[in-house]
């Protein structure tokens, strides 16, 4: 029994057994094999969800001659940036980027102003007709701007603002959704803060700027994320308003570019262009995943 070889053998077996046990425990303690199967299933779903995008990324970086033959399969070793260079020169994507940035942030800046003022009024000023006005604002949330695109086009036409960047921005300068979001946040601040500031001789607008707005910074950030994501991706409205490259945003530019390339050989270019358009928001999302998801959560629940 004192045979050293034997003890070594049994301890090895014991170690192996304990390793297996540990693995089992890791997999199974939370409900046995159904739980393990469930994990595997959902992780597989996650992988499937990534496939379309992964394939587009692969094609975008693949030499176009090669992609034409294999359609994304084939040699996994050849990578190139040539497709991006081709796309960048083939269509004014630089201009589209600038337009989208201008439109998106132009809208956001004006929205922050209009939304703050109205939210403060609804939260803390008792004025005649407040209830009725609030209901009127509610109506805008129920009727999404997409449904009114054609009617808004007529209005813009009457104003003579077709094919201008300001025309693309104008309908979004007010946001009922933002008003609701901020009104809720403002109402949760203690009223004593405002009273104290007023004792000190601060004007009401000063109070909004110096107390309410800074204290609700996280809510503003949520609103900004949702607003920017929405307008960065908006398509239908800019499509019908913009008629020239000076005013077209990225989404419309991408649609035009994709339509001008028909044959399969040009898929590499379309994939590259698609990545160029989607990249900024995706990068932001990957970097601040938690904040993005939280923002959309609040937006949906309160909007």
């Amino acid at each position: 029994m004192n045979n050293p070889v034997l003890t070594w053998g049994s301890s090895k077996r014991a170690r192996r057994r304990s390793a297996v046990r540990r693995l089992r425990r890791a997999l199974l303690t939370r409900g046995g094999w159904p739980s393990a199967a469930w994990h595997a299933l959902m992780l597989a779903f996650g992988a499937i969800w990534l496939v379309p995008f992964a394939w587009v990324v692969r094609t975008a970086f693949q030499p176009s001659s090669e992609a034409a033959g294999s359609g994304g399969f084939g040699a996994w070793t050849s990578w190139t940036l040539a497709n991006f260079a081709h796309v960048w020169e083939g269509a004014p994507f630089g201009r589209y980027y600038a337009n989208t940035a201008l439109i998106t942030f132009g809208i956001l800046i004006v929205q922050l102003l209009t939304v703050t003022l109205a939210a403060y009024a609804f939260a803390r000023v008792r004025f005649a007709g407040r209830g009725m006005l609030f209901a009127l604002f509610l109506a805008q949330i129920m009727v999404p701007p997409d449904a009114l695109v054609f009617s808004n086009y007529q209005v813009l036409n009457q104003m003579g603002l077709l094919d201008t960047k300001i025309g693309i921005m104008l309908p979004y300068f007010a946001s009922s959704f933002g008003v609701f979001l901020l009104r809720q946040a403002f109402r949760q601040l203690p009223y004593e803060l405002e009273e104290a500031a007023r004792m000190e001789g601060c004007s009401r607008l000063g109070i909004v700027a110096r107390i309410y707005a800074p204290l609700c910074r996280p809510v503003y950030l949520s609103f900004a994320i949702v607003s920017v994501s929405f307008h960065w991706n908006d398509f239908l409205w800019p499509l019908i308003v913009a008629n020239s490259d000076t005013n077209r945003p990225l989404t419309v530019g991408l649609a035009l570019f994709a339509k001008s390339t028909e044959s399969g050989a040009q898929w590499s270019y379309v994939c590259a262009a698609t990545l160029l358009v989607a990249a900024p928001l995706l990068v932001g999302f990957l970097a601040f995943q938690r904040k993005f998801i939280d923002s959309f959560m609040h937006a949906g629940l309160k909007g």
């Binding site: 969800w49 995008f53 994501s229 960065w232 991706n233 398509f235 990225l250 989404t251 991408l254 649609a255 698609t274 358009v277 989607a278 928001l281 995706l282 932001g284 999302f285 990957l286 993005f292 998801i293 959309f296």
Partner: peptide, 10 residues
């Protein structure tokens, strides 16, 4: 969630 960050047109 990432598909929601990609424009519908893309």
């Amino acid at each position: 969630f990432y598909p929601n960050m990609i424009p519908m047109i893309a």
